[in-house]
Design a protein around this nucleic acid. Structure first.
Lengths: 126, 126
DNA sequence: CTAGTTGCAAAGCATTTGCCTGTGG
DNA sequence: CCACAGGCAAATGCTTTGCAACTAG
């Protein structure tokens, strides 16, 4: 039912190698060398499959299309950083703690998402 | 150059009255009674104008289209809560503090965004 | 073999833009 | 008056889907 094809390997490898969340376009570019001519439909379909299979995790980015990261990155609670200059999203370790003190009366808390913005080392240096 | 029309008043009033960030669709619905037949183009064009004029502020929601809130709500630093059940976004007071401890070596911090998820009082009660 | 996969092109959505009519000042 | 605004519809940009050809197992 889940067949092993070079397109799927290319996409999963791209995610694993990147070490950071990728957009569908970035995945397609990264997969292009391992599987030339790979189509966008395949990229999107494969993303959906990988997410359902738990091998990839969607990373919602405020105001932008979702990115996706390899499941191994999602094993621990973490957040993300987006570079103002190059637009890349990076993983951040840790979490500043509970958000409960921000919650008004009557609301229940299930999860939270934190995004930091600034410059990544490569761009800050330039 | 900025003409006062009933469509623009309807949209600005909708934002002011809502007291929480609205999607373009929600704005159109809310403006419908004050300005029947208002078109989507007008809603989007007006949003853009209001944002440029500083009367409305975009609220980026992870994985979803932007919402917008009235400028008065953005005068102080705050974050947002999204209800899992009804999908509405609410303003939250305060901020749990600095995020600098999450930042790896070499990154610079400009801003941050926090989103909490759970149930709002209306939905949690039901 | 043959059901799962792929590529292409068309279809969907949300948002933007062009164009011509309408109207605020 | 007449330049700014509004409504409609076509155009975008991103993502999904239908379909016929292809291929892994």
């Amino acid at each position: 039912m889940t067949r092993r094809t070079k397109q799927r390997e290319a996409i999963l490898d791209a995610l694993a190698d990147a070490g950071r969340p990728l957009t569908p376009i970035e995945m397609q570019d990264a997969a292009e060398s391992a599987s030339p001519g790979i189509s966008q439909s395949t990229v999107y379909r494969t993303i959906k499959l990988l997410v359902e299979a738990g091998e990839a995790v969607p990373v919602p980015v405020p105001g932008e299309p979702d990115r996706y990261e390899h499941a191994s990155a999602a094993e621990h609670h973490h957040h993300h950083f987006k570079c103002d200059a190059c637009g890349k999203v990076f993983d951040l370790e840790g979490c500043s703690g509970s958000m409960k003190n921000m919650l008004p009366e009557g609301f229940t808390l299930r999860d939270h998402e934190i995004f930091l913005y600034g410059d990544c080392p490569a761009c800050a240096g330039a």
